Amino acid sequence: MTERAWIASRKGLFELQQQNGRWSLGPIAFLGEPVSMVLADPRDGAVYAALNLGHFGVKLHRKDAGAAQWTEIAAPAYPLKPEDCTDPVDWTVRFIWSLACGGADEPGVIWAGTLPGGLFRSADRGASWTLMHSLWDAPERSEWFGGGYDVPGIHSICVDPRDSRHVLVGISCGGAWVTHDGGASWSLSARGMRASYLPPERGDDQNVQDPHRIVGARDTPDQLWCQHHNGIWRSANFGADWQEVSAAPLSNFGFAVAVHPADGDTAWFAPALADQTRIPTDAALTVTRTTDGGRTFTALRAGLPQQHCYDLVYRHGLAVADDGRTLLMASTTGGVWLSENGGDSWRTISSSMPPVYAVCFQ
């Protein structure tokens, strides 16, 4: 049974607890500090929190199962840039944008995606990190550019539960990349995506796509969903190729997507108006859901604000629990909503949170 969730915000990490069938806000960790990402590891019960402390840099903490306190652990860091290197990118971790667990057969393995576009792997629960030079040194990286930020970043990491060496990452703006050998080598995996923001002759270029978020289904891992800058795409073969979904109502723009863990045909989205506006359509917050692989969608509004609503849901601001029914959504303007019936109706947890970067269930 789902009993806990985490809300990573501009002013700390909030714990959401379920007791006697009712959800309520619990303790706050890192009060006043920006928590950019949170990860709950189902393999050992640990929780990881990434902090972005500006002048003091990026920090990473872990709370072990049953522990009362958080422990600071190593944060991903780039090596010193060689003096003769012509790369214009600053080799400094500016932000931990994604965290993901390795496979069930890889206890202690954690992946981290950062700005400016680096992918790191830890084999010891964050005590040390290794930069995936095979991806960082790819010649194609010179063409990547910023999406939500002024530098490219890795926001999505999908580990194949059938094969821990099979990993796909999503990059804004650098397309999708896949490894079949645990990171020793990488190849582009965004065939079928289209970038309408580029000249037509470059629209199909895999290396300059802007997938806002890529997630997969736990029990049907070949099925991946992508909320792209200008559409929704779906893959039935773990990203080998992608097909555009054209039936989405309201808007095909947005950042967040969540997928039912046991049913890859069911997914939820939080559409918004592009591109400069970035608010819900008609200033009314709506979640859209498909249960048939994107052929049809239902607009879900019950319990969500329908007037004067300017909430934007970030990439990691929408999550579904293992039961496939409980959803948590939070926004840039401090709204937090919970659904226990697959999105059919929502109840407000808070309307006065700090801006929320990420949510997850444990």
Rank of each mutant, 00 (worst) to 15 (best):
D124L: 14
Y78H: 09
V151H: 08
A112W: 06
V93G: 01
G102V: 04
I96L: 13
W97R: 14
S142M: 13
G183H: 08
A176G: 09
G147E: 02
R162P: 06
G117R: 09
Y149R: 10
A123H: 04
R94I: 07
V109I: 12
T92P: 00
G148M: 09
W111K: 13
E140D: 12
W129T: 04
G175R: 06
P139C: 11
D150V: 01
V109D: 00
S164T: 06
G148A: 12
W97E: 07
D84A: 15
P79Q: 06
G146T: 03
T92H: 10
I110F: 10
F145C: 02
G182D: 09
E140P: 01
R125V: 04
L188G: 15
D105G: 05
G148N: 10
A123D: 14
I171R: 00
D105T: 09
S156F: 10
S142G: 03
A184Y: 02
S189E: 08
L131T: 02
S128Y: 05
T130E: 14
C158G: 00
A123I: 07
S134L: 11
R162S: 12
I154Y: 07
W136N: 02
L115N: 12
G170N: 07
P88Q: 01
L188R: 13
W111L: 13
W129N: 07
L188T: 04
A104R: 06
A123L: 14
W97A: 15
L188M: 14
L188P: 14
L99N: 04
D181M: 07
F95G: 01
C85W: 02
D163M: 07
A104C: 03
G126N: 04
A127I: 02
G147V: 00
D90K: 13
T114Y: 07
T114I: 15
W97N: 06
A176M: 14
D160M: 12
G118N: 03
V109R: 12
C101T: 15
D150I: 01
R125F: 11
G148V: 07
Y78L: 13
T179I: 14
S172V: 01
P139R: 09
D181C: 11
A176L: 15
T179Q: 03
W129H: 04
I96G: 01
T114R: 05
G102T: 04
C158Q: 14
D90V: 15
G118M: 05
P116Q: 08
G147D: 02
I157A: 03
S172P: 00
S185M: 05
H166E: 06
Y149E: 12
K81M: 12
R165S: 14
D105C: 05
S187Y: 14
C158K: 03
G126R: 01
T92R: 10
C85L: 06
P79G: 13
W136F: 15
I154N: 02
G182R: 11
L80I: 05
I157E: 02
D137Q: 10
R162I: 04
L168M: 14
S187L: 12
P88F: 09
P139T: 07
R121C: 13
S185D: 08
D160H: 15
P88R: 00
A138Y: 05
Y149V: 05
F95C: 03
G146V: 11
D181A: 08
S156I: 12
L99R: 06
